[in-house]
Design a protein around this nucleic acid. Sequence first.
RNA 1: GGUGGAUUCGUCUAACGGUUAGGACAAAAGAUUCUCAAUCUUUAAAUAGGAGUUCGAUUCUCCUAUCCACUACCA
Length: 534
Amino acid sequence: MDQKKRRVRFAPSPTGPLHMGGVRTALYNYLFAKQAGGDFILRIEDTDSNRFVPGAEKYIIDSLRWCGIYPDEGVDAEGNLVSVPSERHPHAPYRQSERKPIYRKYAQQLIDAGWAYYAFDSAEELDAKRKEAEANKQTFSYNHASRNSLKNSLTLPEDEVKKLLETTDNWTIRFKNPENRTVEMDDMIRGHISMNTNTLDDKVLWKAADQLPTYHLANIVDDHLMEITHVIRGEEWLPSLPLHYLLYEAFGWADTQPRFAHLSLLLKPDGKGKLSKRDGDRLGFPVFPLRWVNAQGEVSRGYREDGYYPQAFINMLALLGWNPGTEQEIFTLEELTQLFSMEKVVKSGARFNPEKAKWFNQEYLRMRSNEQLAEEFEVLLQSFNSDRERNLTKAELTELSGLIKERAHFITDFLTICPYIFSAPTQYDEKDTRKFWTDDAKAIMPQVIARIESIDCKYTVDCPEHLPAAEAVPQIEESLTSLITENGWKMGAVMNALRLFFVGQAKGLGIADIIYYLGRKEALRRIRKAVETL
RNA sequence: GGUGGAUUCGUCUAACGGUUAGGACAAAAGAUUCUCAAUCUUUAAAUAGGAGUUCGAUUCUCCUAUCCACUACCA
C-alpha cells in the first residue's frame, strides 16, 4: 500500500485576476488533498516576466481565502507567499522567479544525458520558417524531422557551440523527443491515453535570454522537489502530458511521478467556446471571484461584490463538473471534502449557467438566520447612507429580514423588495400608480382605512404605537381579506392601488406586510394622502 | 491542417450492459379571491448519426459529424 501523504498543488500564473475556472481547479485540488488528510500547496508560476501583472498574486491568494481555501504550504498567516524555508514551509520559496538558480542545473542534467540540446535559432528565423510552411499549407515544428537541419548543438561543431554559448544569450535548451515512441499515459479522469512522440515538438525548456526555465521544466522540477503526488490541472495541459511523462523519465524520477487528472474547461453560457471575461460583461455576470481593476482602470465585477456568499460560490463551482451521484445539491465545504471523488468528475466541458449560480446563492441566503441577515442588511444600508425616511432598529430589521428573505437571491435584493421602507411615496412614478387607482378603488378606500384602524392586535414592545407584533400579520391580512370578500370588491384593484402607491415597483408583499413594516399610523397616513392626492 | 480530448432534456447532470432514461436550473400551465414575488401542483423536454458485438447497448468497438484544447524562447 502506498502510505505516502497526498500532496497537491495549485500553480497559477500571475498574469491577471484568477478566473472562476481557476478557482474550481484550486477547489478540486483542495478537496482531493483534504479528504485524505493531505497537503494543498500554492505555488506561483511567474517564469514569464513579460506577462507579469502586479497585484495578481495577491488577488489569487485573497480569492482563495475568500472561498475558505487556505493552503497548507506556500502562504503564511498574513496571506503572503513564503520565500524563506521553515518547518511549515520546507520547500520555500514558492514563487518560481525566486527559484531561478535551481533550474539551470536540471536543464544541464538533461543535456548531459542526451535528453536535451542547445538551440541557437532566433525567434525571427523560426517565425519565418513557420510562415513559410503555412504558405505551403504545412506546419513547421521543431522536432525529429527538422532539428537536424536547424542551428543547434546537434548540427553545429562542438567548438562553435561553445563559442555561441559564451558569446551570445539568445539561445535556448530544447527537449529532444525520442523518435517514434508511443507514450502510454494514465489520467485519473480520462483513463488511458497514448500518443506518439513523432507528433510532439521539441519544447523549449530554458531560455538564456532571461535565465529562466519555461513552464514545462519548472513545473516538473518543482513538482518533484515539492513531492507532489497528484497533479490536478486544466484540460489545456493534456497535450503536453507526454512531454511531462518523458521529462520524469529523463530525470530518472519515473518511480515518484505524480498521477495526473485533467479537468474539463468551463464553457460560455451561450454559443461556442470557453468562458471568458467578455461573456461576463456581455451577459451580466462575474467571471472573477473578487472585483478587479486593471492597469487601464477597467473594472471587472466579482462574485463577492455582487453579493454572493463564498459558500454558495464554491458549492456552485464544485457541482460544475462533479457530483456525488445523489440528488443532493447543497453542500458545505466539509461535506464536499468528504464526498469528493475524482472518478465522479465529468469528462466533458461544463457550460456555465448564471441562473443556476443565483439559485445557489438564494438557497444559502434562505439558510441564514434573520439575525445574520439583519446584520448584513444594516451594513448594506449604511453603505448607501441614504436619506431614508425611517431608521429601523435591529429588531425591526430582523423581523423584516425574516419576511423578505424568501423572495431574495441576494442581500442587495432587500432594497428593491421593500423600498417603501426607506423612501417617501411621492417619488414613485405617478403614471404607474394612476393606472391602478380606479374609481372603485377610491370609493372603497374609506372603508379599508376604517378596517385597518379597527384591527385590534398585539403590539411589539419596541414600538407599541405603530408596529403590530409579527404574529398579528396573518390576522391583519385576514381581516382585510374578509372585508373585501364581504363587499364583493375586487381584491386586485384594492391591492394594486395600495401597493403601488407606496411600494412603487415592489413585488410580492401583502398589504399586511406593508402595514406591519410601516406601522399602522404610517400606513394610514399614506393611504389617506393617496386618497387626497388622486 | 496535424495531434489529443469530448458528445444524455435549452443548461448542469444521474442511470454495475437490463429503469416508464431520474433529479436540479430555466420554460409553460393551474392554484394561491387581477398582476408580480414566493410557495404548491402539473406539463413539456434528451441518449449526435450510422454500423457492429450482444438475448439485450445511453453504457463496449469502429466510422462519420460536431464541439473543445493544444500546435510560442505563454502559462
